[in-house]
Design a protein around this nucleic acid. Structure first.
Ligand code: ZN
Ligand code: ZN
Ligand code: ZN
Ligand code: ZN
Lengths: 175, 175
DNA sequence: GGTGGATATGTTATAACATATCAATAGTGG
DNA sequence: CCACTATTGATATGTTATAACATATCCACC
């Protein structure tokens, strides 16, 4: 699996807007956890901050571990997997099954209440550059999927959809 | 991940209809390979036969390896991964990304020509019993997915959709 | 300001999934 | 038969994820 180069938030200076986006996201995460009685500890915050620094490029757990070790040299695989589990339980991070990688939830979709039910994300993944974009799953699409599954007798839930292809940039380059 | 018990085609006697389904599928596979200049060797046939014996329960590569070793004691991981690669290249087997497991293509959907393009399967997976059903991706759904992705500038291809939930049987038991 | 339960982290080891490499062998066409 | 290519055998390793158990921290209560 080829992957894009990673960004180390401790070294590579982010642009001002990216940095403030990250700060906003971290503040939001802290708030969200507080509201749910979950503890947003330093370890969890560090992991989320690293993921947020990647700008739409998911990281594998071991890439994350390498970056985490720059701040916390003793970190081990369980360190990152536990943080990821926590962040996923709290819907702050998603796992991309098709690439074994992890991405912060962008919650562009959580601004207001969803009558249709729980958070059902959809990802658009570029097979060329790795860019991964989370978009809201269209309601009509959601209903069509649920309904079609029900025609086969299945009751399906809100696991992320992963669609692979080429991002706008790579489409342009490609021809 | 919990998985259902496996069926060993060499020992557990299949019902007549299941056995003949398997034979038909194997014959079809042989034909299909012949037509494409691909060699349907004994090793590949054995692997496909084992998968076909599972009746809608995907196997992991190492479950498959254990079963294969009953016929071929020297089999190693590369033995099964090579066979799986071949079978996937020839669209005889699918990989289920969300469970790291493998399932024979049922090609209920390949009976006639598809104007919409390549084989774009959809799987309905039961999280309780593991049953995995391959169904044709509805054309309207396919178009909606393609179109919505294009609205975001992405050009997406025919990777399988994996929808998780409860199968009819497990829904009934569940309440 | 102790005590105890719950939650989180540290530490070591291992399970589970997948591929690289190179030598040996078997099919294929001249 | 020979050279060529695809396939298989065999060994080792890489990659992803969790088990198991010890320790530390937080917090409510006395
Ligand atoms: Zn999300
Ligand atoms: Zn791209
Ligand atoms: Zn199929
Ligand atoms: Zn079921």
């Amino acid at each position: 699996m080829s992957r894009a180069p990673v960004t180390d938030p401790g070294q590579a200076p982010l642009s001002d807007s990216a940095a403030s986006d990250t700060e906003r996201a971290l503040a939001h995460a802290a708030e969200h956890c507080e509201a749910h009685g979950a503890r947003f500890t330093a370890a969890r915050r560090r992991v989320l901050a690293i993921l947020l620094a990647q700008q739409g490029q998911p990281l594998t757990a071991y890439q994350l571990l390498d970056l985490l070790r720059e701040q916390q040299p003793g970190a081990q695989p369980p360190t990152v997997y536990r943080a990821l589990d926590f962040l996923m339980r709290n819907e702050l991070v998603h796992r991309i099954e098709s690439t074994n990688s992890y991405l912060p939830c962008n919650h562009q979709h959580c601004g207001h209440h969803h009558p249709e039910g729980e958070h059902w994300p959809q990802f658009l993944l570029c097979d060329r550059c790795g860019e991964t974009r989370e978009v809201p799953l269209d309601n009509a699409l959601r209903q069509a999927l649920t309904r079609q599954a029900r025609d086969y007798g299945f009751e399906v839930g809100a696991r992320p959809l992963e669609l692979h292809g080429l991002c706008p940039g790579c489409r342009a380059e490609h021809e």
